[in-house]
Every structure is written in C-alpha cells, then in structure tokens.
Amino acid sequence: MSVDYSKYLRMDKLPLYWCPGCGNGTVLKALLTAIDELGWDNNDIAMVSGIGCSARGPGYVNFHTFHTLHGRAIPAATAIKMCHPDMHVIVFSGDGDMTAIGGNHFIHACRRNIDITLIVVDNWIYGMTGGQYSPLTPTGTKASTMPRGNIDPTFDVVELAKGAGATFVARGSVAEPVMLKNYIKKALEHKGTSVIDALSNCHIQWGRRNKFGDPVKLVDYIKSVTVSQAKAAKLSKEELEGKYITGIFVDDPTKKEYTQSYKELIEKAQAKA
C-alpha cells in the first residue's frame, strides 16, 4: 500500500532544501512510512533537531517541530517528553550534531533510558558547513579539514549507545530503505531510549572528496561496506575491517523507562506531602 505523504509533509515548505539525491530524504521517508504503518496521529508526535543539513528534516513535517542549536536536540526532546509523557518524541539530526558537539547529551539520554527515539543521520561528514570531518568520518577518507585523509579513529555508534545504556539499538542504511524503515518502526514502538544509526549518503561533501560524487554510486558503495549480522557472524575480524554491521543489536524491554520512574517519584512525593 502506498503512503499518502501529504498527510505528514508541510507541502508549502517544499521543495526540500537538500541537494538532489541526498540521503536525508531517504531516511525521512523511511521514518514517515514507519509512522504511517503505526497509524500515529500527527498531534501526538514531536520531532526535534539540532543544526545541520539533516536537522532541517523536522521543518518539513506536520508534527510539533523544534529546530534547536547545534548539538542540543536531545535535552530539548527530553524536556518535551517529561512535560508530555504520552507524546512520541523523535530526534532527527546529524552524526556531528549527535556524536561530536552533542555527544554528552547522547550518552546521558541512553543512560536515563527515556522513551525517545534518536535517529542519527550518519553521512560520515559535516555536510552543512562544507565537509569537515566528524567523529564518524571513516579513517583514511578525505574531508575539508583532513585533506590528506582522516587520521582520527571513529566512534561505533552502536557500541557507544549500547555502552551508554540504550535499550534499543539498530543500524540500517539508505541502501536498504525498507530494512531501515522496519528498524525505525521497531525503535518507535520501543519504550525506552532507542537509537538508529542510519548510514546515509552525502555525495556532495563526503562523496566529491572521495570519488563518490554521484549519489547512486555512493549508495552502492554504502551497500558494499555494510553486512548483515548473520553474514558478519561468518566473517573473520580482518574481513570485517572497515565494514558496518547492520541489524538490531539491543532490544531490551526490561530496563525501567525514565518517565515511568519519574511518575513513581511524583506518587511517592505526593503520598508523603
């Protein structure tokens, strides 16, 4: 069944500000399709972002939308969830936004296990500001501030989220949009902090510097560096070098969700008062 996207988009804000073929659109589409499958009401959804190309996403959708400062989407989303615990709260922002300047908020949201969904649009670069390297820029690849190739090691977003205590963690990519949509849907349904590492193509700022200026070629390349969990299990450490494993890595419904803990705290305080 095809989705009527006009139900979710602010049609008067189109065309999109993004470069043609940008992965941001693919990730946004996967999100809207997942929401459509869940049958959620627009009034019940808040979408929050920081600053970056991907962070412009919320502006196009007809939800409660809040475009904050670079790196600061997560505390705002946390507050919205605390104020309206029955709302669905989604953060849609970039790899730089969430793992560099906003890295501290990222790990603490995971630790609290507050019921928000963090979608990291992981295009390996600071797209908006002209291709400077991010904590997720693959080592050895070029960026405007790493003209000789990136010497920085990268974060593994999945391991970072896991270690910090997120209770749903998955990685998908724009090369397999249906799978990405399915992971996002599961993340949205999950009660607790859910993290999606969404590998995405910035063929302009990352691609052009690394011989992938064409979006189709870059998406194919992304496909070539991803392996499913099942396949990965059969590969050696050396064979997995430089590969991104896709799949669901954590799905734990047992850890207490934060707004629930806070609700109980209120009950305790009011019983005593």
Binding site: V48, F66, T68, L69, R72, I74, P75, A76, A77, T78, A79, I80, M82, C83, N104, H105, H108, Y262, L265, I266, K268, A269, Q270, A273
Partner: peptide, 23 residues
C-alpha cells in the same frame, strides 16, 4: 514532585538551559 512538576538534574548547564527552553 510534590506539586506534580518536573525536576531534572542534567549532565551540564547547556543541557539544562536547553531543556528549560524545550519545556
């Protein structure tokens, strides 16, 4: 909590002011 409001200690002052703005 006694008055049903939200109190949160955040990871830093930046998160705190942004949370207050979000609220």
């Amino acid at each position: 909590p006694e008055v049903g409001g939200v109190f949160m200690q955040f990871e830093d002052e930046i998160a705190s002011v942004i949370a207050a703005i979000g609220a």
